[in-house]
Amino acid sequence: MDAIQFVQQEMLTKGNFPDFKAGDNVVVNYKITEGDKTRIQAFRGDVIQISGHGLGKTFTVRKMSNGVGVERIFPMSSPNIDSIELTKRGKVRRARLFYLRALVGKKARIKELKTN
């Protein structure tokens, strides 16, 4: 096998995360190191894109914070992600939800996916 492919496969850490898609509402518990202390910070928002594959796979979470849109990109295989909780499944028709950036208030909501 290609040496670089081998390294990427070997270094890939499969976190025990729920299977989520764009449009889902998630809470990312991210480890933050300040000096010699480590704490966990939660970031809750909608997943607006999942991009890349292998070691470079990332997902973008968007939330509204005090009326300002905040987006954060997390590497899927980052050892700093403590856990991911899936809170809501969203009903969306595309894989990248950049149209949300132009919307505010009630229009920026994602309908919840009803599954029985």
Partner: peptide
């Protein structure tokens, strides 16, 4: 080249040498 995560969670650009 590729990149890997170190123990501290930083992404490190590395060259793979056979």
């Amino acid at each position: 080249m590729t990149s890997v995560f170190d123990a501290a969670g930083n992404s490190v650009g590395v060259t793979v040498i056979e």
